[in-house]
């Protein structure tokens, strides 16, 4: 009886999964490109990209959240400093996607580990999240095209109140109840 029962199984690698991490970084890079209309905006998104990459490298949630926040801030800054509307809207989508996919990579890594086969789940999440973003972006840009003549302030106001109301409702909605809010 020597040490023959100890074999080469090391600790489980619980760092973020490769596929989602890569997709998250790609989304972050797209955000940086789309925000390259002002130095402040580009700086913020690049910093966000860096922090996000760092967070994925070390496998921690808080840098990923902060990185996502910086990406969003960069997009808002670009929008304020005169980026085209479509770039701003798409940039917001990619920024939120980067945060979403990064968090997915972390969660999968933590629960299943990097070695486990998870690509089909990751791809499905990525496609679904991207579809949600595009599903909002395309109609929004379309409505804007249609009404590009003279947007009546009253209509904009009405729509804004709708958005605000929906935020209030959504914040109260319980994802556990599983019913449409």
């Amino acid at each position: 009886m020597s040490n023959d029962t100890s074999n080469g199984v090391g600790p489980i690698d619980r760092s973020p999964t490769h596929l989602s991490s890569t997709l998250a970084l790609l989304a972050g890079v797209s955000t940086a490109v789309l925000s390259a209309y002002a130095q402040v905006a580009l700086g913020a998104t690049l910093a966000g990209l860096l922090v996000l990459g760092l967070g994925l490298g070390v496998g921690r949630q808080s840098p990923v959240t902060v990185g996502g926040g910086l990406l969003v801030a960069g997009v808002v800054a670009a929008g304020v400093s005169g980026a085209p509307v479509s770039a701003t809207v798409l940039g917001m989508t990619t920024a939120l996607l980067a945060f979403d996919l990064g968090t997915t990579a972390l969660g999968l890594g933590e629960q299943l580990g990097r070695e486990a086969p998870t690509s089909e789940v990751e791809l499905l999440h990525a496609v679904a999240s991207a579809a949600v973003g595009l599903g909002v972006v395309v109609p929004a840009l379309a409505i804007r095209e249609v009404a590009t003549g003279g947007q009546p302030v009253s209509a904009v106001f009405g729509l804004l109140v709708v958005v605000l109301l929906s935020v209030v409702v959504l914040r109260r909605a319980d994802p556990l109840s599983g019913r449409r809010a």
Partner: peptide, 19 residues
């Protein structure tokens, strides 16, 4: 208007998360 519409995108994700 661009930032406003970007907010609408975020609303989409908030709704996606909840429902």
């Amino acid at each position: 208007p661009g930032v406003l519409l970007a907010g609408v995108v975020a609303v989409g994700y908030a709704a996606y998360a909840r429902v």
